[in-house]
Design a protein around this nucleic acid. Sequence first.
DNA 1: ACGCGCTCCGTAAACGTTTACGATACTATG
DNA 2: CATAGTATCGTAAACGTTTACGGAGCGCGT
Lengths: 356, 356
Amino acid sequence: MAHGGKPRPMKGIRQLAEHLDISIGTVSRALNGKPDVNEETRKRVLAAAEQLGYVANQSGRSLRQGTTNVIGLMIQSSRETVENSDNFFLTVTGGLQSVFSRHNLDLIMLPCPHDEDPYEYLKRMVARRIADAMIISETQRVDKRFDLLAKAKIPFAALGRSLSGAQHPWADLDFDGVVNCAVDRLVAHGHRRIAISAPASEINLGFVFVDGYRHALERHGIPYDPALVIRAKSSEQGGYQVGDELLRLESRPTAVILIYELMAIGLYRRVMEAGIIPGQDIAVVSFREAPRAKFLQPALTCFRTSLHDLGVELAEILLSSMPAYSEEYPRTSRQSVWPLELIPGESDAFQLRPAK
Amino acid sequence: MAHGGKPRPMKGIRQLAEHLDISIGTVSRALNGKPDVNEETRKRVLAAAEQLGYVANQSGRSLRQGTTNVIGLMIQSSRETVENSDNFFLTVTGGLQSVFSRHNLDLIMLPCPHDEDPYEYLKRMVARRIADAMIISETQRVDKRFDLLAKAKIPFAALGRSLSGAQHPWADLDFDGVVNCAVDRLVAHGHRRIAISAPASEINLGFVFVDGYRHALERHGIPYDPALVIRAKSSEQGGYQVGDELLRLESRPTAVILIYELMAIGLYRRVMEAGIIPGQDIAVVSFREAPRAKFLQPALTCFRTSLHDLGVELAEILLSSMPAYSEEYPRTSRQSVWPLELIPGESDAFQLRPAK
DNA sequence: ACGCGCTCCGTAAACGTTTACGATACTATG
DNA sequence: CATAGTATCGTAAACGTTTACGGAGCGCGT
């Protein structure tokens, strides 16, 4: 019988067992839904735990069963990211959690400090066994983190495709599709000289984007001109810089593909300073709609997708490669390119005059 | 002697001890910098640990000493946040980490899912003892989380001031100062009818901002008109909406104070659609410079601060309220208002004609 | 009466650390 | 030489769980 104890915080499963006059083994089994426990006593245990606010100590639990029920999402708060990701991660995180929460898995974000090597940071986190599985982002062209995780035998998936080594699980946006669609569209409007902006080529994204661009051009029999590839930051500032570079080119392109919509703000500004009007003198198409640039004039033609759903996809890919959940998420492939939808605007709506 | 073992991953401190032919107690003491261990053996232990890649299992450690060496930063990825915080958190996080890392404390971000009650989420995290201390953000006017943390006796600090209950530790931006400065400036330019935008008043920020605004007006003998307080989201969209509301007012304000710089993009757009030119027909001043709006025309008068340094301040406040670190961070006050710097632009640079 | 299977529960051993305590060897002191 | 003090280390007990194992009670068929 309860000896008048008020619901003060529990000290452990032992107290809860004493309170109920049963053994701690039974209490544990009752709480964890094990089969060999009377339904009657299970109810009593659950009720008492609820009332006394008992929650199993995570350290004890993980120590015993070697599992933390936590998924880690590593992000680099690099200057680049901080400036351009405009809550990319928070949005994807929502999708991830909607899946993980079904399995009582908690997601934590692990922000790697600016001044620490991402590899060392991840190594530390892995060694501490802070999470059962890891999601890494902002993958580099060659990224040692893949080997680290593989060697440590910890399940993982990448947000952003991997080119390094084996067939690691990842989900990524369909850069190829976007670039293909953009080039097709521009060519159909009469453009032949099409510039493109991309981040540094060590970053996977920077490589893949330009690669797709080159192939798309080839399909149309347009020669690839490296001078038209402009490396810039994915920010308004970067867009301004892209504008600068465009104006500096001897034979100015008639169209430009941006990798990040915010850049359009800076680009518009720069070219308009030079008396060039977007959507009239130069066509602009951009990847990945940010809600930011909605107010641009003329309206920007861009590609949109649900980052939330991308998170869902990535979560399922990760779970499918975790032994404890793999049978629940059977997959034929653990790589996924996520489609985007074209949002036509006015910024590329004009037909180029055939006259040079 | 090492019996030819290649540096494969360690299984525990026991193996490391066997490898070195000393007891696990000594190994533990050596690794943790305890005094009663020979400097010679300490070196050997450290070297072996480094070579074999041994890192103490966090679960075992926390179980024993009841501490995790982790600080949790809870964020709500609410729609509001996702849309407007533009990496506010990631930037502050950098400052937090720069302090925590000096004490081998790791920061993890705990994103509360949209569909979960923040209070319940925090309760779960606290019960799991996932972190030694907590930082909460986006505090509400009355926020039960403060009581929860206080009752659980877990050290915490808030990013955003608290109005609920006792004197909890927090750091926050100096909204009062900003609003005062903005109103002073506008009044000096001849404005008397000044509108302001703010988020919903349940959010502390929404309340504090408007409160400061009212007091500033009173100082100048200008009556407070509730109709001039426009509640809107802190996004371009919200700015557009603010423009709408302004145009709808019978006696149109000659100036407006925005709470978030991005809103200016939408606001500019809306009022210009109505033929009203910012910085000429209406004065605009905004709080908290986002790097986003740098390209606005006319340049926006706004207030800037270092969110990184705000993070540093917040970290020190938190540590000062943790018994293990308090002597290292002595403070007279655990509440801190963080100053901002005025960045004059052209958007409020005109003198209002005295004629009505 | 006996054995068997089933349901339910208690016991105790792990999991990997840290740390209080005691043991040992050595040095200094009388 | 005896003793006290110091430096260094080993031993074992915790920390809070989960879970393999076995035991008690019961019903049932032979």
